[in-house]
């Protein structure tokens, strides 16, 4: 059963409506939730900077190993070395948020440049970009990361650099596809015919007006992916290294005690990962729908 109801009275035009009216409620909820996650990340940095943490993240309390949640002074309990879980959870995101941002930024920047070259210039440049993209795509990413770790050191920044670079082809092909679509619709030709300079066409018409939503959704997906990647690497012992807290190494170290009935040290960071990744995905999805007016029409 589906219900359709006409708004009574005068039917107004789309552009006259304020954003929250023409948007779908579900999209606003998505974006709201995503922004909540982002603000929690910002809050984490603030708390860290202001030293408003309940405990020192590295302070060991050997009398209180693996304490359950609700223990006085330790809201979420402690881990296997007696460190405060809540504190480490709050700081855990910081281990990869900035490196993740760097990965996303380099993927977007490189992808946009290559995509514009391939899509706008076309011809040989396009073929080279497509070939390079296929080359990078066909190389197993995990192997690439392990190679880099072996050559340098297991540092989160190196790992994220690899992730950023390996995401370049995906972004490039999206941008290239968008430009091809605009070309199909005579959009670019019309802009050239009017006499607009090439830089205006690329920067304003192609990138700002038409690729904005696409790049935003790629950025949020990239962030989510960076978190997931670090978690997998932590499991192999190559992620963020102890004693620096990260959700990935917290899950990994907690998992050793999981079967003994101490669920919390690994479940708490796992839930944090779940809700954060969900937040980034929904943020991207919602923003895309709002900006593109996908559901609106």
């Amino acid at each position: 059963m589906k219900r359709f109801r006409q708004r009574p009275g005068e039917i107004s035009e789309f552009s006259d409506l304020p954003l929250w009216q023409k948007a779908d409620t579900i999209d606003l909820l998505y974006v709201g939730y995503g922004l909540l996650i982002v603000s929690l990340v910002v809050a984490s940095y603030l708390l860290g900077a202001l030293q408003w943490l309940p405990h020192d993240p590295n302070a060991l309390n050997l009398n209180l190993l693996l304490a359950g949640p609700g223990t006085p002074g330790h809201l979420l309990g402690t881990d296997f070395m007696g460190r405060d879980l809540l504190t480490r959870l709050v700081l855990g995101i910081q281990a990869y948020f900035l490196p993740g941002l760097m990965a996303v930024a380099s993927a977007l920047f490189g992808g946009t440049v290559l995509g514009v070259v391939a899509g706008y210039r076309g011809g040989g440049a396009g073929l080279i970009v497509t070939f390079l993209g296929n080359l990078i795509d066909s190389f197993p990413r995990l192997v690439l990361i392990l190679l880099v770790i072996a050559a340098f050191k297991p540092d989160i920044w190196y790992i994220m650099a690899v992730i950023g670079i390996s995401n370049v082809p995906a972004v490039a092909s999206l941008v290239q596809g968008k430009i091809a679509m605009l070309r199909e619709k005579n959009f670019i030709e019309a802009a050239v015919a009017l006499g607009l300079p090439t830089r205006t066409i690329i920067a304003k018409h192609i990138l700002w007006y038409n690729c904005k939503a696409l790049l935003i959704i790629q950025a949020t997906l990239g962030m989510a992916e960076a978190i997931l990647m670090e978690t997998s690497l932590s499991y192999l012992g190559f992620g963020v290294q102890e004693p620096t807290p990260s959700w990935g190494n917290m899950v990994q170290s907690g998992a050793n005690y999981f079967l003994q009935g101490n669920l919390w040290p690994s479940t708490a960071p796992a839930l944090a990962i779940l809700f954060t990744i969900l937040g980034f995905h929904l943020l991207g999805d919602g923003l895309n729908n709002l900006l593109e007016g996908k559901r609106g029409r």
């Binding site: 552009s15 619709k185 005579n186 009017l194 006499g195 007006y209």
Partner: peptide
């Protein structure tokens, strides 16, 4: 050539050509 476009123009068959959907 770009400067010369101030005196020669084109109307495209496609009604949407040149009308950026995101611009008023």
């Amino acid at each position: 050539l770009r400067a010369l476009r101030s005196s020669m123009q084109m109307i495209f068959q496609d009604l949407d050509a040149g009308l950026n959907p995101k611009m008023r």
